[in-house]
């Protein structure tokens, strides 16, 4: 049921050409250079260490690997990360 609604929403968003991050709560990631990352529509932090950061998303989670990672800002919908980023991975 949930799956079907999601699919419907996605189809609607595509049909109406609406951005996914607004309609479907999809994460939006902005990376500036190698040192800054902004993430919108997150669902909290799962794990935080200096070299690895896992962030919960509406579906699955995001894993950021790097060095000296630091959470610069943290708000219910938004977060900003700084530090040397090596990789960004989506995991289920």
């Amino acid at each position: 049921m949930e799956r079907r609604r999601e699919l419907l929403n996605k189809a609607m968003a595509e049909f109406l050409e609406l951005p996914g991050d607004l309609v479907l709560d999809l994460p939006k990631i902005t990376v500036v250079g190698r040192n800054e990352l902004y993430l919108e529509n997150h669902r909290g932090i799962i794990e935080y260490a200096l070299n690895r950061l896992r962030i919960n998303l509406s579906r699955g989670f995001l894993e950021i690997e790097g060095e000296e990672l630091q959470i610069k800002t943290l708000m219910p919908e938004e977060m900003g990360i700084s530090g040397e980023i090596h990789s960004i991975r989506f995991l289920d």
Binding site: G44, I45, Y48, L50, Q70, I71, T73, L74, M75, P76
Partner: peptide, 16 residues
Amino acid sequence: INLALSRGIHIWDIKK
């Protein structure tokens, strides 16, 4: 951190 986030406490400059 997650609990604080859900309760609307603004936290920043988090560093391990």
